[in-house]
Design a protein around this nucleic acid. Sequence first.
DNA 1: AGCACGCCGACT
DNA 2: GTCGGCGTGCTC
Length: 829
Amino acid sequence: MLEFAADIEHTDRKTLFAEVILPLAISKNYTYRVPYEQNDAVAIGKRVVVQFGKSKLYTAVVKALGELAPEKYEAKYIIEVLDDKPVVTAKQLEFWEWLADYYMCNIGEVMNAALPAALKLASETKIVLNPEQVDKDTLHDKEFLIVEALEIQPELTVSDIAKLLGQKTVMPILKQMFEKNIINISEEVSERYKPRKKTFITLNPVYNNSENLRELFPILEKRAPKQADALLAYIKLARHQKNITKNELIEESGAGESSIKSLIEKDILFAEERNVSRLHHEEDGEPGNTFDLSVPQAEVLQSIRTQFKEKDVTLLHGVTSSGKTQIYIRLIEEMVLNGRQVLYLLPEIALTTHIIERLRMYFGADIGVYHSRFNDNERVEVWQKVLSGEYKIVLGARSSVFLPFNDLGLIIVDEEHETSYKQYDPAPRYNARDAAVFLANRHAGKVLLGSATPSFESYYNARTHKYGFVELAERFGGVELPVVEVVSIAAETKQKTIQSHFTGVLMDGIKQALENKEQVILFQNRRGYAPILMCKICAYTPKCINCDVSLTYHKSSGKLHCHYCGYREDTPNICPACGSTHLEYKGFGTEKIEDELSVLLPEARIARMDLDTTRSRNSLQSILNNLEEKKIDILVGTQMVAKGLDFSDVTLIGIINADSLLKFPDYRANERGYQLLAQVSGRAGRRGKQGKVVIQTYDIYHRVLKQVIENNYLDLYLTEMEERRNFAYPPFYRIINLDIKHKNPDVLSNQATYIAARLREHFGERVIGPEPPLVSRIRNYYIQSIMLKFEKDGISIVKAKSVLRDVITQFQTTKLSTGSIIQPDVDPY
DNA sequence: AGCACGCCGACT
DNA sequence: GTCGGCGTGCTC
């Protein structure tokens, strides 16, 4: 009735309808009606609270506004407009749409990945006890349990109750209890972002007159000496700093909170609560530190500028330690002077305090940092500062492509080949590098891709002149490239010069380095102690109950770990299959290398760097600090040592077994193997001391090893390209991967075959799979892959995607489809 | 993603 | 008989 009345009163006013994006994996957008009084408040890009479904409330983003009422249904009202100003820009909405289309997911999923969680409040169903006392005797067992739990903890969620009762469907019970007035069910939304507040203290301006102050002191000293102390402390602090917080004052004066409170009550001091930033800010930092580029660097910089005149994307191929960062800094400087924004993308692991400090030295507080170790509130603050234009420069990982830039002049993608730019599991399965190319284009900005070992896609694009190309072949400051030596494990085993996993050559190198007080890095591409535990009698090996992969023994925990899902179990003493006690560890990981090395070299200070030792927030940083401060002689690590060290001063690098690096089960094995070897090797050497790399292998004549020794990336590229052309792989071919998931392997197999058959109707031989050996089990789901290949000049990827979309839609409405999830994944083109 | 509804097998 | 699991469809 009220609504009706409102209608009549405002007939002269427009009725607005808003199309909104909901943060859910649903394929449509929904339209809500704007209450009249909010007509001026709604705008595209603002967040609104809407009810979706029976009771849930969600934060949605307004995508479009219109006056046309939907014909087929009655639109619900928008409950609330959350923002004064849009938090999402028009350019971002365009970007979201492109991502959803390109990576074949829903725009809601993109929104989910893009917005920091604190901006996406959703209601939670809270179960609370009805205040009226209930007669417990009338309750069923389950109802009794719930009531008891609520007496201890007044608020429970639906999933809490499901856990409590040990059953999956609890809604019917809760509904019944609600009808019997035992409980209340409420939907609560709360803003999750809370500004951080601090109390600042200022002196009543009356006392800025020193005479007044002088009069005040004797009175205070006599009656309240503590307060006099506090006041003195304030005056002392005020000499050096503008803003004084209450806590600082308490600390400085040694007076308690009560004395300060009294001073405030006497109007001698004023207290004021202000919002403060959680983000790092240097108090009056000294930006603008200068440096000079070397001649080759300056030439490269000039050449990048020239390329940018014609090309939107330029690839910088620069060997490790060639000083790419300094070139980036110059380019960033120029862009900021033009008043435009810059995004500097780095793989997560490379975002250490070292690189952040280095950039802050040049750019002061204008630089924002955005990565996954930030909590939600910190992310929202970065988001807002990018939106307001306060941050001209953002240094961030993959997800920072989602920040609300206004005018992005340049995106730098450092270590462009890194696979961590690609998000795999939840949709959108995007590659930040490729997304950056689109994003920059929309802002009429440029992209600089930088790498010592570019991905073949980018290299191909550069060689075919789609991208600009600049090379920097010299290391900065006259540092020589390291000497690489390949050592045969087989030969040394025969000669018995090998000790556990260390060849004589490597061992001599290590001892020499220790004698010279130099540091060593040993690289082993596997964490844990041993990847396989096997019964010598019956060959039984413990496997993960979820994933069907062999469990890795970890000595530090004494347990068997699954490296896919994190499942752990106790290490058996006797074989669970045959009861024998002859269990054997097969293979070796970083833990074992560290262990054996400490026996062979008891006096050396050995540390380990892998996922297990860097899990907590600061442990990576502390390992890096110890390395820099020379508290570590030998660092044993996984890929991380190749990627996380930006400044090391190490003279010897040992690769324990190169074979495992060159035998990835996919067509990019050689590319990845080379990249990793080159990256690890690149850490060796410093000014005035040539580094050395020892590669241990069974396969000393492997083509890639030769290419690594000769530092000949072009040769690797050309030979690999030839193979890819023959086997129809990218970049000559485009690929869409389709993963099908199901709990039941037989159903999965049927469905995969069915889908492949449907796809073959359209694409014939271009459809590969489902490949039976590819059935893998992760987190209780079986997965099977189907690959779609397209000749570069054959069917366009747009057509391919539209057909795929059809097949998927059809498949999802077919009876066959029970429970399966389809994940299309588009190769980077 | 939730949530409701309906069907079907495994128990009091 | 009914409880709870699972599949299916819908949400502006």
